[in-house]
Amino acid sequence: MTGELHTEGYYGRPIVRPPVWKQEIAWYLFTGGLAGGSSALGLAARATGNRPLARSTTLIAAAAVTASPALLIKDLGRPERFMNMLRVVKPTSPMNVGTWILTAAGTAAGTAAACEVADVLPRVRALAQGVAGLLGPALATYTAVLVSDTAVPVWHEARRELPFVFASGAAASAGAAAVILTPGASAGPARRMMLAGAAGELASTTVMERRLGDLGEPYHSGKAGMLARVAKGATAAGAALGAVAGRRPLLGRMAAGLVLGGAVAERFSVFRAGFQSAEDPRYVVMSQRDGG
């Protein structure tokens, strides 16, 4: 009852409170990455004169960036007060900083897509595409800072690795989505981005789990563990299939579907791991008693 490490805590109750965020936030971790990666890919495609790819990625980015605020607002306890996030500029709050990034990137991506579809105002489109493309990588990675800046051990102690998990996941998602929606002849860069992103995702999650040590247990147990296995399996299978599929449209798109599914599962795995980590007081005690 009075042993050395009191990992049981107080009647086994959580020390840190698990998040109150619902599934919408896990979906947003995915759509934000997809939007950010697609915007970056769109700008690069435009700059190198790959018009079909520029068009598809611009539309994907707009769709993902439209879904994002909808998901975020739905999760608020007081959705009508969404605008309260824009009443201040607050560098200590990653969510506040992120809301500004999303607002700017979303406006730009939406404008670029509207001009693209209507085929008007080429200069406005170019400017909007530039802004969206430059903000894209920030949009894809700030969410890692957001979840790391909590007292949840599995998130906070992975603060150096999570941005890379999210950045590579964004590359994999954006590449895969573009492979599905771009004519094969123009989809080469998207294929490469998908493969590189998938490889990065597998590598960075492996590094993250290894560095977390015992604190990374949630990635091997329960729902988060199951999702992590699905993510790794789908991503690896998609990457392997994509590598051999080349330009073959059906196989290529099947591979892309697997990579997209893997990226979704990866974000849900990180999301769920946070709950499991906070629910067990053992992790809080371990992270703080080992000098972590």
Partner: peptide
């Protein structure tokens, strides 16, 4: 860490 990751994403995209 996020800035480095974002930079890698941007450079990686250009490289692709």
């Amino acid at each position: 860490a996020a800035a480095v990751a974002a930079g890698a994403l941007a450079l990686g995209t250009v490289a692709c």
